[in-house]
Design a protein around this nucleic acid. Sequence first.
DNA 1: CGACTTATGTACCGCTTGGAATAGAAGTCG
DNA 2: CGACTTCTATTCCAAGCGGTACATAAGTCG
Lengths: 201, 201
Amino acid sequence: MGDSRNTVMGRPREFDIDEALERAMQVFWERGYEGATLSDLTGAMGITKTSMYAAFGNKEQLFRRALERYVEGPASYATRALEEPTARGVAEAILRGAVRTTTLPEGPAGCLTVQGALAASDGGRPAHDLLVGWRNDAGLRLEERFQRAVDEGDLPRDADARRLARYIMTVAYGIAVQAAGGLGHDELQDIADTALRGWQP
Amino acid sequence: MGDSRNTVMGRPREFDIDEALERAMQVFWERGYEGATLSDLTGAMGITKTSMYAAFGNKEQLFRRALERYVEGPASYATRALEEPTARGVAEAILRGAVRTTTLPEGPAGCLTVQGALAASDGGRPAHDLLVGWRNDAGLRLEERFQRAVDEGDLPRDADARRLARYIMTVAYGIAVQAAGGLGHDELQDIADTALRGWQP
DNA sequence: CGACTTATGTACCGCTTGGAATAGAAGTCG
DNA sequence: CGACTTCTATTCCAAGCGGTACATAAGTCG
């Protein structure tokens, strides 16, 4: 199945769409949805506004695509962490991933899903809601993973999976805020360790 | 001492400056520094742009004043909490205050010092830096309070005051993010309780 | 009263915003 | 070749941005 024609009609695109998306992601990450102007974006992407509109639709859809890329790239630790064999390992992996991703030397400080649109005016509400939805999903997936750990006997029967998941996600978000404020990797990892020291489900 | 003339020259101001500041604070709180336009602000304040500029200088100075008001009002719990007799009580009071303030029924969800300018473009950098500075100060005051607790024997001699302070602040910021995402008072208090359950300095 | 001082309302400023229109460039087709 | 399709570059758009000029209103002062 699949018409894998690698030649398409019309003038070929002169830029790499993945590379452009990567640059756009970085801009949104650093400045937030509303803080990133079309000029900022297309400037970093190395293309004109027309090309951007032709390839992505509009600013909001570009943000959507950039978020997808972020989730599958810098934030992919959130999904991988769920595969750790124990609930404790999952919690550790999530906080460790949050620390690493929010202090990536090649990326802006902080987390796109937090600072992309935490507060917004009317124009930024779609982006805000998109991020809230993603954060809620992430929390839910973690809750399900913890519930599984309860069912499997990895966590005590009376452990509250939802409460634990919300707690870990909250610490991760707090780490993102601290990273945006300039705290470095080691200081944040210290915080994560402190949070885990009190891990008693 | 002081020339407490309560009659000043010139046409008297027709609006209450405190009330106007309160409204401006709410707008910044909800939409962030860059998301709040002059029209949003003056509209909520019930005054014209000219009156706003005459009374406050410009948007940035208005934000500064609004932040002062926020710190002395909704965020005053952060200072009061330090007067609790025990370190544990201080931590509890801070998290409880964060939960309450980020879910105030009469105010926007979340915390102004977090969502006021977490990510920013060039124009929002002054506001961003202002908030980072305030958050760092708050963390430092908490650290000093915890250090005092160590010195007084309230906390074990080997407790790390800085680490504990950063941890509590991080949880508070995480709570602010969760509040901005729609979590309610009771759910957040659950998270705060979970964070405190693991409190073992 | 008239000089002075301060606040207000209107109208305006240059600039940037997200977005569209249009013409031409660069390809694949038959 | 020429028809067709797609991307690119330039130009332009109305609306909104933060901020200002200016005339006028409303007070205190001598």
